[in-house]
Design a binder for these strands. Structure first.
Lengths: 146, 146
DNA sequence: AGTTTGCGTTTACAGATGTAAACTACAGTT
DNA sequence: AACTGTAGTTTACATCTGTAAACGCAAACT
C-alpha cells in the first residue's frame, strides 16, 4: 500500500477547510461549505475547489456515501501544526528562536494545564540545554550574531 | 513622513536575504549576493530580484554609496519573527496551540537563559490563565473540540 | 575619451494560491 | 421516463513566488 505521506503543504485557505474536518472528524461537502461560508466570505465554488485540492494532495480521504462523499482527514491536526510551526521556525535565526517563543507565548492564550506542561518540558530541557546558541544566519565559517 | 509600516509579507526566499542584512546590520549587494549564494544554489540575478522586491516592499532601505547602494533593514528581525509566528499560530485552533508549543519547544534547541526566561513568563502567565481554552474551529454558535 | 565592469532595473516565465464560474452526471421527484 | 437539484470535476484567471536572463547606465580602467 502507498505510504500516507503528505509532501505538499496545506495553504492558508486550505487550513480553514481542514480545521472544520478535523474538528468534526468527518463531514460531507454540504456541511463543510455551510460552516466555512459562515467564517469566510467565500462562494461555495471556492470551497469546493479547496476540498478538491486537499483530496488531490492526500490531506483528505473520500468515502462514497450515496451520491456524495464523506471527507475524513488523512493527516492529523497535530502533525500539520507541528510541520507548519517547524517550517516557520526553521527559517528564523537559531539564536533568536528563544525570543520568538517568548513573544509568541506572551501573546497566546494558554490554559493552565498547557502552561504547566510547558513549564515541565522546559525544566526538563534545561538540564541539557547549552549555554548559548550560535546565530546561523551566515554561511559556514562566518561568525555572526543578530 | 510616511509611516514605516510593512503590510506585505516577506516570503521564504526573501527571508534568506533579510537574515544576512539583519545579521550584518547593513550590506551592499555584492556582500549579500556573495553570502546568500554560499547558502543557496541561486544565481546572482535571483538574489538581485529578491533584494529589489524587499526594497519595494519597504523591508530594506537604500543609501547611495558611490555607484552602489548600502542596504539596511527597515523592519526589525524580532518584529518580522513575531509577525510570522503569530500569523502561523492564528490559523491554528486556539485550543491546540498549547500542544503546538510543546512540540515546537521539544524540537528546538534553546539556550539556558532562553529557557529560564520562558519559564518565568509562563509562571507569570499561569497566575491569570484560564482553566480551558475553547476550540475556535467552528463558526460562532457551534461547539466543537478538536 | 573609449571601453569594460559591475550595479540596479526591467522583463520573463512556470508553478502555486486565492477566488470562482461553468459543466457533468447521477439521485430523487413528478 | 422526464425533470431538476446538487455534488463533484474542469476550466479560468489574476496575483504571488521562485528563479533567472537581459538591459541600461555610470564608474573605473586604459
Amino acid at each position: 500500500m502507498p505510504t500516507t505521506e503528505i509532501t505538499e503543504t496545506i495553504t492558508d485557505a486550505e487550513w480553514c477547510v481542514m480545521r472544520i474536518v478535523w474538528t468534526l472528524g468527518q463531514a460531507d461537502s454540504h456541511t463543510i461549505i455551510d460552516l466555512v461560508s459562515q467564517q469566510h466570505d467565500w462562494k461555495a465554488a471556492t470551497i469546493k475547489t479547496l476540498i478538491g485540492r486537499l483530496v488531490k494532495k492526500g490531506a483528505l480521504a473520500t468515502t462514497k456515501n450515496g451520491r456524495q462523499f464523506i471527507y475524513t482527514p488523512l493527516i492529523p491536526e497535530q502533525t500539520a501544526m507541528d510541520t507548519a510551526l517547524s517550517a516557520q521556525l526553521d527559517q528564523m535565526c537559531a539564536m533568536c528562536r528563544g525570543q520568538a517563543f517568548v513573544h509568541a507565548i506572551d501573546q497566546t492564550e494558554l490554559s493552565q494545564s498547557d502552561i504547566q506542561e510547558l513549564i515541565l518540558h522546559l525544566q526538563e530541557k534545561l538540564t541539557t540545554a547549552p549555554t548559548t546558541i550560535a546565530c546561523d544566519c551566515l554561511p559556514e565559517g562566518y561568525e555572526g550574531s543578530c
